[in-house]
Design a protein around this nucleic acid. Structure first.
Length: 461
RNA sequence: GUGGUCGUAGCUCAGUUGGUUAGAGCGAUAGAUUGUGGAUCUAUAGGUCGUGGGUUCGAGCCCCAUCUUCCACCCCA
């Protein structure tokens, strides 16, 4: 008989019960906090029309979209003689061919589908609309540690208000979430307007994206290499020269936005960005957060729909990319025909949070326990006796199970032990005759005999 | 997408310059103990050496391809 070793696609994973218990611990924590701030859940389909997805994440993003081949004879539409896509040299025409054979794609994040959702349901929603969404997303990236092709994002967004109060709220949520999970984090904040102001000040607004990419690497490769890269990317000598104050005083800028303001005197946009940050900072300073936040002008973020505040969160004690990030977008719904809808939101990377928590040993030990009580199976008579009791305690929400067959006690005890079941009930003929049961506490090893009617109160202690 | 890297029992890993029958620890199963798990002792089972080709009298080891893992770019949760 032939068999193939089964496998799952690169960058995807199965989750065992233990892993699910831990993942749900994260999801439950997030959900609880989101709800406390008044956010409501929604879900959207795994696949979207490619027209919804394409062009929203920059050129790189388009490449990382998983595209779904049309069903049926997907080559049908390419037969148009005017197109000549297949007859000549199909290999060199693969890009032009793409829209003819695929029109759906797996979602790349939750923000763009959310924008689409808002536009489609605008008449049913109450604005400002606050929603959260916990679902998987897919990226055709090359996997690495902390980088998967299928992973869960947990998004909180509010759309329909430019109020900076929501930026503050989101930072509060970040702070609450990570203190609840026990992860120490640094929260870095920047503003696209500040970045635009810098580009404007050095007279290189046209090179905005190149400047962002280069500045983003400052920590990694240092000032000199950044300058080199800027030159390679076509920035003039003068512009690079003008940029130096920003690059070299970076530390001072974090602690004193006055210096930054001085540097951006001639840029209205830049000054507006600074004012926004200061306003947010003032509100946050009164809130006594458990984690630190700071302005970081190096923070750029790749997604090109951000227009204001941008936020990124990193774990302090683990080597991992950002575990949470987001920002404000002024016109994400504009492309879908609903202009002037400012929104702001963040996304928690559940899988990276999981990896960090596992590395740091932050999961509670008893997290995987599902059954609280196991009834030992001594035979058909005894099982009947146990079935009644099992039903009764289940009524009270206490999970219980009966061992399925008459096996050696050792085996049954071992089953309880391995499943982390804290209580084992032994009810043999002896106990039944007296209307009693023996309860063994698997943690302490103690065992006592009680009236069968006392079981519920015993367990509820 | 570019460059590199890893893969041997369920898990962690040995395996010499290519040489007979591929090993260990942990785990699993059974027993020592017929109503008592975790500790100990004994025994047993468990391997397409990632997959497919090739070189060779002979390949876990060498060559090619491919899949997977991890890493650096790129980008990002």
């Amino acid at each position: 008989m032939f068999f193939q070793k089964p496998n799952i696609p690169k960058g995807t994973r199965d989750f065992t019960p233990v892993e699910m218990a831990r993942r749900n611990y994260i999801f439950d924590t997030l959900r609880g906090i989101f709800q406390v701030f008044g956010y409501q859940p929604i879900e959207t389909p795994a696949m979207e029309n490619l027209s919804t997805l394409m062009g929203k994440y920059g050129e790189e993003g388009d490449k990382l979209l998983f595209k779904i081949l049309n069903s049926g004879n997907f080559l049908d539409k390419t037969q148009d003689p005017g197109l000549n896509l297949l007859s000549e040299d199909p290999l060199s025409h693969y890009k032009e061919l793409t829209p003819f054979i695929t029109e759906k794609g797996l979602r790349y994040d939750l923000t763009v589908p959310f924008a689409r959702f808002v536009v489609q349901h605008q008449h049913e929603l109450v604005f400002p609309f606050k929603r959260y969404q916990i679902q998987p997303v897919w990226r055709a990236d090359r996997p690495q540690k902390g980088r998967y092709r299928e992973f869960f994002q947990c998004d909180v967004d509010v759309i329909g208000s430019p109020s900076l109060l929501y930026e503050v709220e989101l930072v509060q949520i970040i702070d609450k979430v990570f203190s609840a999970l026990g992860i120490k984090v640094s929260i870095r904040i920047n503003n696209r307007k500040i970045l635009a102001g810098i580009a404007e000040t050095i007279g290189a607004s046209g090179k905005f994206n190149d400047i962002m990419v280069a500045i983003d690497k400052l920590d990694k490769i240092g000032v000199d290499k950044v300058n080199e890269e800027l030159t390679v990317r076509g920035l003039s000598k003068e512009a690079v020269e003008l940029l130096q104050p920003f690059l070299r005083q970076e530390g001072a800028l974090e602690s004193n936005s006055g210096i930054l303001e001085g540097l951006l005197l001639n840029s209205e946009t830049g000054k507006k960005g600074i004012r926004e940050f200061q306003e947010i900072k003032e509100m946050l300073d009164n809130l006594q957060l458990k984690n630190n936040f700071a302005l970081d002008i190096k923070l750029a973020r790749g997604l090109n729909y951000y227009t204001g505040t941008i936020i990124e969160v990193k774990a302090l004690d683990a080597k991992m990319g950002s575990i949470c990030g987001g920002g404000r977008y002024d016109d994400l719904t504009g492309i879908f025909g609903l202009p002037d809808m400012s929104g702001v939101g963040i996304s928690f990377g559940a899988d990276r949070i999981y990896d960090v928590m596992l590395e740091l040993g932050l999961f509670p030990a008893d997290i995987a326990a599902t059954t609280r009580v196991l009834f030992v199976n001594f035979g058909p008579e005894e099982v009947k006796y146990c079935l009644t009791m099992a039903s009764r305690i289940r009524e009270s929400g206490i999970s219980s199970e009966i061992y399925p067959e008459v096996a050696k006690l050792k085996k049954q005890m071992e089953y309880a032990n391995r499943k982390n079941i804290p209580f084992v009930i032994l009810a043999g003929q002896d106990e039944i005759n007296h209307g009693r049961i023996s309860v063994k506490n698997m943690k302490s090893g103690e065992q006592q005999t009680i009236e069968s009617g006392e079981l519920l109160t015993f367990l509820q202690l």
